[in-house]
Design a protein around this nucleic acid. Structure first.
Lengths: 230, 230
DNA sequence: AATTTCATGTAATTCGTTACATGATTCC
DNA sequence: GGAATCATGTAACGAATTACATGAAATT
């Protein structure tokens, strides 16, 4: 049972659902796919993998070339023989129970889902999430942020004069960041709604399809001058 | 000695330097002044206060009306007698050693100073920080973020095709947030520099004066349409 | 041959929260 | 007189990190 970590467990299951991987690569993916929002070290990852195995959600396989990850792979037992690519050490694969578990987590809409620590990871797996859950999470997040803005405005109004310029500037910048995220959420929610309208009110309880995200022009700039390389 | 918490210790010393307070109020200030960036609970605060007392950086005083906080106050011993306002329980006051300690921390420019967890609190006390330290912290933060951008761009370029729309959107939004903070830092740095130019290159090693922050027009907007309220 | 990157793990520690326990004071 | 908020604490737990330990494979 052991209530191991929310976020890390979720992310690991989610990444492994896409394809089996070994720990080292998993960690890299964790720290890029989930981007700025969270970073994990081996000290967290490996123990987590162990308990997930114990829970029967993962199985350890040995090897199969790393490039071969998406192949059928009927548990290859290596015996250190001829292998094309670099040999991987321990490859973790999601069991059917693990997949079930992940789906269960995906459908959770508890109020934690839109807290800072969880929201990023939830969003990262929206591709696997049903639209109604996506909606609830986005809207939950938005009202969470609006509530926060409320408080900030109130406390700012109460204390405005007693604060020095820097504290004030910090506050201002903080609020602006939150407001910016709210606007972002508004766009996303709107385009989710638009997506819903497009498809006819036919059935399909768990329909997984993207409502078409708001296309942003320059993807954070094409960046022609990649000088500062280390 | 006991290496108690960086951020919390710093913030407590900083707030108490401005005026003595009791724990309860301290905590509120902590969670508004330092705003979105950090929140603390009593479970962290009170133990921290204790060790700070042990270290000789704070002393506990009993009472004095809460409103009276800025008065001379030569350790009032209450004996539950007639007092004007609501009576406060334990008021913490910075000792000279505590003030020294805080100043020492203020001048620290270790590479942690511009990490996510520290930067906010450092900035919040820029009013008490010498300009050259301010500069180093701001510039340190900026190059930290630029380095982060670098990595994100690289990993994005490597994996662009293999990612679904939501992951991509998350990445994009993340980068945009970081870019936005960089622009903010640029403004701040520029106005710090402008401030330096204004004053003649006369001495004063530890000169504390604000270089005049960039005035932002609408302070986070007057907010005329507060519809989406919960 | 040496260094870097890949790869896996453990033990101790850090930083903080939640839940609990307690009680005074103020507001309605 | 009952609820809310003020006020102070403690014990148990949580989630993740750092530093350490180890070694194989690839690159230069």
């Amino acid at each position: 049972m052991s209530r191991r970590s929310g976020v890390l467990e979720f992310a690991v299951l989610g990444l492994l659902r896409e394809s089996p991987m070994h720990g080292y690569e998993l960690r890299k993916r964790l720290n890029t796919s989930l981007g700025v929002f969270r970073a994990f070290s081996y000290g967290s990852l490996y123990p987590c993998l162990k308990t997930l195995v114990t829970n029967g959600w993962l199985i350890e396989e040995s090897t199969g070339t790393a490039e071969d990850a998406t192949a059928p792979a009927g548990r290859v037992v290596p015996s250190s023989s001829a292998l094309g690519g670099r040999r991987a050490k321990i490859v973790y694969r999601l069991t059917p129970e693990g997949k079930e578990r992940f789906e269960e987590l995906l459908s959770h809409t508890g109020p934690d889902a839109w807290e800072d620590e969880h929201f990023g990871v939830r969003f990262a797996f929206f591709g696997q999430t049903s639209r109604d859950v996506r909606m609830r999470v986005l809207e939950g997040r938005r009202s969470r942020l609006e509530e926060r803005l409320e408080k900030m405005r109130a406390s700012l109004a109460r204390t405005r004069e007693r604060l020095d310029d820097y504290t004030l500037e910090l506050q201002r910048h903080g609020m602006e960041s939150v407001e910016r995220e709210v606007r972002w959420l508004n766009e996303l929610i709107e385009s989710e709604r638009a997506g819903r309208e497009q498809r006819r009110p036919a059935e399909q309880d768990t329909s997984h399809d993207t409502g078409g995200l708001p296309r942003h022009r320059g993807s954070t700039r094409p960046d022609p001058s990649d000088d500062t390389a280390k």
